[in-house]
Design a protein around this nucleic acid. Sequence first.
DNA 1: TAAAAACCGCGGG
DNA 2: CCCGCGGTTTTTA
Length: 144
Amino acid sequence: MVVARGSCPFGLWHVHVVWSGDLVMQVRFLRVPAERPAPPAFRRYCAGDRDALSGFLSVATEGDTTYARIYRTVQAIPYGRTATYGEVAAAAGTGPRVVGNAMRANPTPLVVPCHRVVAKGGIGGFTPSVEVKQALLSMEARRG
DNA sequence: TAAAAACCGCGGG
DNA sequence: CCCGCGGTTTTTA
């Protein structure tokens, strides 16, 4: 299995992707670009294409662990919509803080759209910066 | 290793 | 403001 790495810009950030075919192993937001480009679908998503990432799978959703169930629940949240940590927790059969832990540890943001999971009384957190989450949500709100 | 404590991108009282 | 929650990570022995 051949693994590729590349990035595409998103605002002041660069979306770094590690993937093999349609399976994504890692997505990270860094301030510097990679040497090679990310898959065109990621560039299109960053430009506002709502369905650009629909063909990708995440390694995070594989298996039958609690986190994998949470990631599958989150992946089902449609573009332009949000769910609270508590709602995701209820659907996955666990508690809200566990969902927060899982989001923080999410190896593949965007593919597993953790930015669509918000706190009941606020936006919630994001790694590396909640500004990225805010930018993603407002982009999806404009398009969605 | 194994057990305990600490840690949280939360929520309800 | 505080406390329960529960999976994971870190600390301690």
